[in-house]
Design a binder for these strands. Structure first.
Lengths: 229, 229
DNA sequence: AAAAATTTTCAATAATTCTTAAGAGCAAGG
DNA sequence: CCTTGCTCTTAAGAATTATTGAAAATTTTT
């Protein structure tokens, strides 16, 4: 369930938006001005809806401050604008806004925008960089095409298996504990049992076929891609 | 890993920027003036950070010369400016600058700008209005006439279906997430549910008939046009 | 203004992938 | 030769993701 930080000083609007978001199963936390918004940040919202005209700290300034925090660099910030002129201002000032919705806000539009921005953020988080092509011994990986060749033969690797192999191939010879692999491949906020890694490694080994021993087990420590031949 | 050409004559600044970029896993090559910058081009940087005030060849002139080289006409060039006045000059001179960062430079801003410009460049490389005729296996596409032939037989493709297929055919083998397809085909400011893509893919598959499997599903990732064997 | 075509959404179902848990296997140490 | 501590293997069922059919909404054409 995604968490949304809603920041606006008008109680009616807050109520209205909150209700509609909750209908869609979003968790909503509220701030009534910029300062409160910054405080609510430690609840780690996945998206921020930010009004512009607010007492204490206006939307522009709040947005800028949020963007300065490393953790929130990529959290989508969607502005709620009352006047058309504000839109130009958003575009002009490069303060890292992701989108803006013009008031009056219809529930449909709100939900569509929120979901779209969440998806966008998610897909850009996935695309965490790395080389497009990796070659390691008999293994050829093409991340762009999501393809793996073993001895020139194409094999199907489902997502997790692909990513584990891709990660290992990018750091050959180095040992990674299960915890580390989970964090790197699954993400820091995913909680699965560490033995899950074993299962994926097994499946990868199956596909590596006669090269199964390329993935070495280091007892008590983790896995690694065998050092070069 | 992306390569960045950093051009500035002040050693302290170079050191500072280089360190911060390398922290983010960028490969950094350095030039201390315009002439050196031009020499370093054969290492094919993905982005260029260019100071304006430099001995031998200033930033403006360097930028102009870089843009004259066909290979580098789309590589992002980001100016590092000391004085506000220079910003107007950048805008005025139309020398193909992509962006500018005003000194003093904070690491966060630096990284944010660099990444954003790299992303922009990447997506515009995709978009580059493709060829008029595309042939892929049994599929023949003529963009000018908006016609599609499957096994030489003409089929009617409504606009969205046409554009999805056209986009995929221009990047065969490569996997595209729904979000990317939406952005590339629908446009960044269109808000439709991501499952809409599925429906269009289905219709395209229907028309591909016995070649339906040319569009492959990569679960959890997206769609791709099957690689040719 | 009606009809047709296209695009989008929704919900049910299908397919695949991921995770868990439990027992087997295996090497090292006592 | 048994115990201990880890890894490997399996297979079931959870969870996620894709496909499908149908209908609503939108746009275009007649």
């Amino acid at each position: 369930m995604k968490k949304i930080l809603l920041v606006d000083d008008e109680p009616d609007i807050v109520e209205f938006l909150k209700y509609n978001l909750e209908q869609q199963n979003f968790e909503v936390i509220v701030g009534h001005n910029g300062e409160e918004a910054l405080q609510r940040l430690d609840e780690k919202p996945d998206l921020i809806l930010l009004d512009i005209m607010m007492p204490k700290l206006d939307g522009f300034e709040t947005c800028k401050r949020i963007r300065e925090i490393k953790e929130f660099e990529n959290v989508p910030i969607v502005f709620l604008t009352a006047k058309a002129g504000e839109i130009d201002e958003i575009k002009g000032l490069e303060l890292g806004a992701s989108d803006y919705i013009q008031k009056p806000i219809s529930p449909n539009k709100l939900i569509a925008r929120v979901k779209s921005n969440l998806r966008k953020a998610e897909s850009s988080n996935l695309r965490k960089s790395g080389p497009i092509k990796v070659k390691y011994g008999p293994i050829d990986i093409n991340k762009e095409k999501y393809e793996v060749f073993i001895d020139g033969e194409k094999k199907v690797f489902p997502r997790k298996e692909f990513e584990v192999l891709y990660f290992l191939a990018n750091n050959p010879g180095r040992v990674f504990g299960r915890e580390i692999l989970l964090k790197e491949v699954w993400g820091a906020d995913v909680y699965v049992v560490d033995r899950t890694v074993d299962v994926h490694v097994r499946k990868i080994r199956e596909k590596l076929d006669k090269h199964a021993d390329l993935i070495e087990t280091v007892k008590g420590v983790g896995y690694r891609l065998k050092s070069v031949d």
